[in-house]
């Protein structure tokens, strides 16, 4: 019988990482954007490349590469700018504010030296105004780093499962 590779996880580590990701999701749902920036390392790379429909023969090119078009390709500075925008109280795409609910599942951890390579699935339900509903499903590939303050996000690649984004904007973080 075939088995797919799945290392037996250290339950304490699994619990720690999951609790970290849940806490992060809760913080974003509660619009704690400034605090959320504190969960990112100084050298964070936050990246959501665009995707395209490709024939199966060229499927390897489905996700845009590092120098290609992205929805997010941010560092801590530009993410801070985005948060400043929301805090200006003139960011109409979040005024009135959205209601969001993040669901984090399928958390898979691979220790890598002092860092952890963590994959997770994310579903963000967003409702705003009267009838605006966006549902974003995404895979996340994170690098979490242990610091004196606990786990921090050193890198996040978000694979949004849409080529044409079915929303009039993306005003949420993933």
């Amino acid at each position: 019988m075939n088995t797919i590779p799945h290392a037996a996880m250290d339950p304490a580590l699994q619990l720690e990482v999951e609790q970290f990701l849940y806490a992060e999701a809760e913080l974003l749902d509660a619009r704690g954007f400034r605090e959320w920036l504190g969960l990112l390392t100084e050298d964070v790379r936050y990246w959501m490349p665009t995707r395209a429909n490709r024939s199966i023969r060229e499927y390897a090119l489905e996700v845009a590469g590092p120098g290609e078009m992205a929805h997010y390709d941010d560092d801590l500075g530009s993410l801070t700018t985005r948060v400043r925008r929301i805090e200006s109280n003139q960011a109409w795409s979040e005024d009135p504010p959205s209601r969001t609910r993040r669901f984090v599942t399928n958390v898979r951890i691979k220790p890598d030296g002092s860092e952890l390579a963590v994959r997770s699935s994310l579903l963000v339900y967003q409702h705003r105004l009267e009838r605006e509903v966006n549902v974003f499903a995404a895979g996340r590939q994170d690098v979490l780093r242990r610091t004196h303050d606990g786990l921090r996000i050193a890198s996040r690649k978000v694979l949004l499962d849409q080529t044409v984004v079915l929303a009039n904007n993306i005003s949420v973080f993933f």
């Binding site: 665009t50 078009m69 044409v164 984004v165 079915l166 009039n168 993306i170």
Partner: peptide, 12 residues
């Protein structure tokens, strides 16, 4: 042009 395209829909 840089490779890749941003595509999205607006209700207008």
């Amino acid at each position: 042009v840089i490779g890749g395209v941003q595509k999205w829909v607006m209700g207008g």
